[in-house]
Design a protein around this nucleic acid. Structure first.
Lengths: 119, 119
DNA sequence: TGACATGTTCGATGGCGATCATACACTATT
DNA sequence: AATAGTGTATGATCGCCATCGAACATGTCA
C-alpha cells in the first residue's frame, strides 16, 4: 500500500551504476554539498527542502533525482516530506574510497588560482 | 637549460588541486581512457600521439592539458615528442582510492566498440 | 472544502565544455 | 634552409546540463 507518490521512487542497484555516472553525479558542487550534509545527519533526518543550497526547489529536486539514480541516496516519503539517507555502505562497496573523499572534503568550491592557460 | 617548449610545462602541486578539479577531470571518458592506458604502460613510455582515442590531436592536446592541471600526469619533452607518466603516488596521497577506481574500471561508460587496446 | 506545505514536471534559457579545422611553434633530419 | 613529425593555440560550432519560473501533484490540517 505504497502511496501514489512513493510508487514513483525507484532506487538503483549499485551493480548497475557505472563509474561514469558516479563521477558525473559527484562532480557537481551542489550535489556534493547535499552528500556532505547528509553524511553529517542521521539517516532519514532531512527532507529535500531542509538543505542549505543556493538554488530553487526545482533545481534541488533535479539534483536529488541525479543522486538517487547514481545510487548515492535512498528516499522515502513521510507525509508531505521526502526523507533522505545516504547509501554509505552500498556505495562504499561499489566505489571504495570515493564517498570518503567527498564527505571529508573541506574546500567547497573552485580552486584559488594559478592554473589558467597562457602564463 | 630547458627548451623553449618545455619551459611552458607547468605541473601542479597536488595540495592545490581541488576535489572539484579532480572529479571534473576524471568524469570524461576520453581522459579516463588516457589514464587507464598510462597505468598499463611504464612511466615515460607513451607520447601524446600514441593513444588509442577517437578524437583529433587538438582535442587530445586539450585533454592532456586538463589532466596535467588536475595533477594526474606529468609531462616531459623528449625531442619532438612529449612523454607522459601517471603521478600515481602523489595523486593517491591527495585523493586516496580515486585513481584505483578509474584504473580498475572495466566498463567504459559508453558501450562503443573496444576503446581499450589489449585488455 | 479550502488553504498551505512539499516536491515534481515542463519548457525555456544560458553557459560551459568537448570537438573540430586551421594555423602556428618547436624539434630533428637531410 | 627545407621538410617532416609532433604537439599547441585559436576561433567556431554544437550539445548538454544546471538553472529558473510556472504549473501541477500529492499530502496535511483547519
Amino acid at each position: 500500500m505504497s502511496s501514489a507518490r512513493a510508487r514513483r521512487l525507484t532506487h538503483t542497484d549499485l551493480d548497475k551504476v557505472s563509474l561514469q555516472a558516479a563521477l558525473e553525479a559527484l562532480a557537481d558542487p551542489v550535489r556534493r554539498s547535499i552528500v556532505r550534509q547528509l553524511a553529517a545527519s542521521p539517516d532519514w533526518a532531512r527532507a529535500c527542502g531542509m538543505f542549505d543550497l543556493g538554488v530553487t526547489k526545482a533545481t534541488i529536486s533535479h539534483h536529488f533525482s541525479v543522486l538517487r539514480n547514481a545510487g548515492l541516496i535512498e528516499q522515502r516519503d513521510e507525509g508531505q516530506r521526502r526523507l533522505n539517507r545516504l547509501r554509505s555502505e552500498e556505495f562504499e562497496r561499489r566505489f571504495p574510497g570515493l564517498l570518503r573523499l567527498v564527505v571529508e572534503d573541506n574546500r567547497t568550491g573552485k580552486p584559488t588560482s594559478g592554473d589558467e592557460p597562457g602564463e
